[in-house]
Design a protein around this nucleic acid. Structure first.
Lengths: 290, 290
DNA sequence: TCCATTCCATCAGAATATCAGATGAGCGCG
DNA sequence: CGCGCTCATCTGATATTCTGATGGAATGGA
């Protein structure tokens, strides 16, 4: 059984059609048809039900499908294992929450790339949900996300511990006062942000629900909006040093149970970490204990 | 990365030379060279150290090797999974101890092949060590061996429980008397037989060591030899009914702790059992409880 | 009903890849 | 030095794979 036939099969099954698979594989449809046919002949079973709408897996195809993905993953891993001689090199693609990147990662990344000049480091930012999705999809080798993460396919290691603070305009002297404002809004970074969810839970416990939201793409814009009295937000206390010191925003302390948030580093359980990733994790741990 | 290149690589690594691999793969040496070269180019690393003596793995090759075997196994399993629709068919190859085959398996096998006419059943016999080796090497889907078996790659399920008896010529009326004979020999089936080992342990506990051995290939020959006073042997009590009834041999009862032996069915942990094997195991369990 | 669209199957020729066999080079050994 | 062993390289024959065109079947809209 040819691995490339299997990959073709996988694409057809995933995309639900031979033509679509051909486009993804940068080839023509007749080719895909031929590969699938050959696979079917080699196995002696029919893998797809063909119809006007496309191709649908037969029971035999359903049984084969998980193997197709596993073989692909294993071949990829084999290549990495053979190439990787223990000296970190190549491209390391990791993800991070925007806030973590801003607050913790810059010095860490700087010293990492300095220590390992053979590595091309790529950092993607996004929400916890997006990062988890991308790690599962093998787009990222790992990611810093808001913990805890419980997923059977992932293994997570604690990276940082943050204390969150609720920010309001400096004119609100207490948390209670800030929450009493009739035109209160949540100023958030992105729709799926895990701090947003946390903030809403936190407010709900205080009887505040159904607030309007303002969404800004950058941390600076958020701080600016809060300073201007447009609303409140939640973010790591350590991140707001400058703005707070300048008196632009007021940080309201929260009870420890609500304030503490663990940032964890997650990676796929079944993917062997590259030397570059191992060195990265070691780097993180070292910084953390220091 | 092509799976066939990987298989070629695996053969070269295992046999220690391209020419030898070519012979095993039914092709010519130039072809093997080409495939290995392509693999090396694709990976960007050298996999073998070539020399007059053959080809030796480089560190990169060592890292790739386990993946090569895993990919091969996974592809084989994929084919089986796709073909196997739950109705037992195809070839089922199992192993068994000679004694277990004689004592327990004949009716079981008969009813199994009757219940599943689509299955070609192959039974290989040998010692526990041989069977375990073959199961690990995927030559057998599973085997009945002398338990307990503790191997991380194997999973074993109890199949039968035997009571062993020590056999001597009918002229020896007691076990003690039988052991006192100066020209005592062990009559055994094969060199690696697990009953032989057990018998020697058993005798050692009674202060009898260093006995000569007689090795015969069939159970009948062993019983004949014991009947003729050539020596003693150990085998399942249930197996010797006819010979014992005929007064040809005498069976000496052993203490329960020494007499009980579990026959277990072992299979590879990481290999998905075929429907034929599942049906077989179910068959065994049913018979056992009946 | 008819036509455009969207699937998949099939075919034939061109481009590629694979194969076998011959040859060459390196090296140790008698 | 020639023999026997290895692997590398080359070449032409063979096989496979790719492409682009064509055809059929089903669907949905005019």
């Amino acid at each position: 059984m040819d691995a490339r036939d299997l990959a073709t099969f996988e694409a057809v099954a995933r995309l639900g059609g031979m033509g679509r698979a051909a486009r993804e594989l940068n080839t023509v449809q007749s080719n895909v048809t031929q590969r699938v046919r050959r696979l079917e002949e080699a196995l002696g079973v029919s893998l797809f039900e063909r119809s006007r709408a496309g191709a649908r897996l037969t029971p035999a195809g359903e049984r084969l499908m998980p193997y197709a993905t596993r073989v692909e993953a294993l071949l990829g891993e084999a290549g990495r294992a053979a190439r990787d001689d223990g000296a970190p090199r190549g491209t390391l693609t990791v993800g991070s929450l925007e806030t973590t990147a801003a607050l913790r990662l810059s010095p860490l990344l700087a010293s990492y790339v300095q220590a390992h000049p053979g590595v091309d480091l790529v950092l993607r930012t996004g929400t916890t949900a997006e990062m988890v999705e991308r790690v599962l999809g093998r787009e990222l080798e790992g990611a810093f996300v808001c913990g805890p993460v419980a997923h059977p396919q992932l293994v997570s290691t604690p990276a940082f511990s943050e204390e969150l603070a609720l920010l309001s305009a400096p004119t609100e002297t207490t948390l209670a006062a800030a929450l009493r404002r009739p035109d209160l809004r949540l100023v958030i970074l992105r729709a799926g942000c895990s701090y947003r969810q946390r903030l809403e839970e936190l407010l709900a416990r205080r009887g505040v629900v159904g607030l309007r939201r303002l969404e800004f793409g950058t941390l600076e814009a958020i701080l600016g909006a809060v300073a201007a009295g447009l609303g409140i937000t939640l973010m790591p206390r350590a991140l707001i040093g400058p703005a707070w010191r300048g008196g632009q925003v007021r940080a309201h302390r929260l009870p420890a149970a609500e304030a503490r948030v663990q940032t964890v580093f997650v990676r796929r359980r079944d993917m062997l970490p590259s030397s570059a990733l191992l060195a990265f994790q070691k780097h993180v741990t070292k910084r953390q204990t220091k």
